[in-house]
Design a protein around this nucleic acid. Structure first.
Length: 258
DNA sequence: ATGGTCGCATGGCGA
């Protein structure tokens, strides 16, 4: 089973690019974040000719928003409002006996200090709340994907030392993410298949030449519960970042033995 | 140290 996760940064503006990814990669399920659209305006119908008959989403006007586009039926759709913030940051489904959690974690603002920056405080609290959830309900036959807005390892950023005080790579949030990973006994599928080397899934729009400078971060993740750790491959579709009018994130693909 | 670019929605916020 092939699963792709992509922070699409507007599902409506990028619907043609989504179509192209589905055509090229043919995953069973595509998981999207930052759809930035109300549910009723999400363009799911255009993917039906490719066999993607099923969808599920939690839409929100302008901000956030998570969605699934699928070839296989999606059951037990749940949207968890962690911290009761009312922001569309989580949706989960069950397909072929697997639970897939699709997350868009808070970015956390610019200042990495909870006392000075309530967005950073919110990010840390959000992760704690997710950890509490998976502590009470230990994941089995589960997958966790999404834009977690944290690059945990040195090799997940272009310069570890320069980014130690930059939100997305600070020790406090990295530790929080690792606690969540440990609590759920989650396996980072990407690093299982690519244990060494610099790999990124996000490059800022602001750089003149993103490929040349390559100042990226690996913010997008695919984790699986330990009982289904026999994945076969995981890779980033880096070339998508070079497409015309694309997202600032590249999709991440996982192939699982299910 | 600063500003650089996007998307949404049409001013300014969030990333």
């Amino acid at each position: 089973m092939k699963i792709i996760t992509w922070n699409v940064n507007s599902i409506r503006l990028r619907s043609r690019l989504i179509y192209k990814i589905l055509e090229l990669e043919n995953p069973e399920i595509l998981c999207l974040q930052e759809c930035k659209s109300p549910t009723e305006n999400m363009p799911f119908d255009i993917f039906k000719p490719l066999g993607y008959k099923y969808s599920a989403c939690w839409g929100q006007k302008s901000y956030n928003g998570v969605a699934f586009i699928s070839k296989i039926p999606l059951d037990k759709i749940e949207k968890k409002d962690f911290l009761k913030c009312g922001e569309a940051r989580h949706i989960s489904i069950v397909a072929r006996g697997l639970t897939i959690h699709n997350f868009y974690f808070p970015a956390g603002g610019d200042i990495p200090d909870s006392n000075l920056n309530k967005k950073f405080h919110f990010k840390l609290e959000y992760i704690k709340e997710v950890e509490n959830y998976f502590n009470k309900k230990k994941p089995s036959r589960s997958i966790l994907v999404g834009d977690l807005n944290i690059a945990p390892e040195s090799d997940d950023v272009w310069d570890h030392k320069k980014l130690l005080n930059v939100v997305s790579h600070t020790p406090i949030e990295v530790n929080q993410l690792k606690n969540l990973q440990k609590t759920g006994d989650w396996v980072d599928v990407f690093r299982k298949h690519n244990p060494k080397g610099k790999y990124f899934s996000w490059w800022s729009y602001r750089s003149k030449d993103w490929k040349l400078s390559n100042k990226g971060r690996r913010l997008d993740h695919i984790w699986v519960s330990a009982d289904i750790r026999n994945s076969t491959n995981c890779y980033i579709l880096r070339s998508v970042r070079d497409w015309d009018k694309t997202s600032d994130h590249a999709p991440v693909v996982a192939e699982l033995k299910i």
